[in-house]
Amino acid sequence: MVNALQWLFGILVVVTVFFSAFYSFRSRRASDGRLRGLYASRMNISMGLMLIFIALIQMFMFPGSSVRVIVGAAFLLLGLFNLFAGLRNHSHFTRLMRQ
């Protein structure tokens, strides 16, 4: 069971890294400011999910030490902040795209 969770979280981290890089590239190449913001918000969402998955790996898959729990908690907070900011910006830029 633990081995399956390690594989699942590992695959999810790789997928979110791919999407972060993909949307980062598209954000930098977009000429329209609204598209640039939309792609940057999707990159933030992907990066937030990646950090959350890394935090879950750190906190639950290995024997707990104080340093590991602190690093996992920091990654979790950073991931939640990125996810929240990305979702907020995504809703803002999708409203701009509709106008």
Rank of each mutant, 00 (worst) to 15 (best):
Gly72Val: 05
Phe25Asp: 04
Val14Gly: 08
Asp32Cys: 03
Met50Gly: 07
Met61Pro: 05
Met47Leu: 15
Gln99Asp: 13
Phe62Pro: 03
Arg36Cys: 05
Thr94Val: 10
Val67Gln: 03
Asn3Asp: 14
Arg29Tyr: 00
Met47His: 08
Ala74His: 08
Phe75Thr: 11
Ile11Asn: 07
Leu76Glu: 05
Asn44Val: 02
Ala73Asn: 14
Gly86Phe: 01
Gly10Ala: 03
Gly37Glu: 03
Val2Ser: 08
Ile52Gly: 07
Leu77Asp: 01
Leu38Ala: 12
Ser31Glu: 15
Gly48Asp: 01
Ala21Gln: 06
Phe60Asp: 12
Asp32Thr: 02
Gly72Ser: 02
Ser46Val: 04
Leu49Asn: 05
Pro63Phe: 05
Arg95Val: 03
Phe62Ala: 09
Arg88Asp: 07
Phe93Ile: 04
Met1Pro: 06
Asn44Thr: 06
Thr94Ile: 11
His90Ser: 13
Ser41Leu: 01
Ala55Asp: 09
Gly37Ala: 04
Arg36Phe: 02
Leu35Met: 11
Phe62Lys: 07
Arg34Thr: 15
Met59Gly: 12
Gly72Asn: 02
Ile54Lys: 01
Ser24Asp: 06
Phe53Glu: 13
Leu77His: 00
Arg42Trp: 09
Ser91Ala: 11
Val69Trp: 10
Leu8Gly: 12
Ile57Glu: 15
Ala30Ser: 10
Phe25Thr: 11
Gly64Asp: 13
Val69Ile: 15
Leu56Tyr: 09
Arg68Pro: 02
Gly10Thr: 04
Leu77Pro: 01
Ala21Leu: 12
Leu83Asp: 02
Ser27Glu: 03
Leu77Gln: 07
Ser46Gly: 09
Ala74Arg: 01
Met59Ile: 15
Phe22His: 04
Leu87Val: 11
Ile52Pro: 04
Gly86Val: 04
Ile52Leu: 13
Phe25Pro: 02
Leu87Trp: 03
Thr16Tyr: 01
Ile11Asp: 05
Met61Gly: 02
Ala73Lys: 13
Leu83Gln: 09
Ala74Gly: 04
Ala21His: 00
Val15Pro: 03
Met59Thr: 15
Arg34Trp: 04
Leu78Asn: 06
Val67Met: 12
Ile11Thr: 15
Ile45Gln: 03
Leu77Lys: 02
Ile57His: 08
Val14Trp: 09
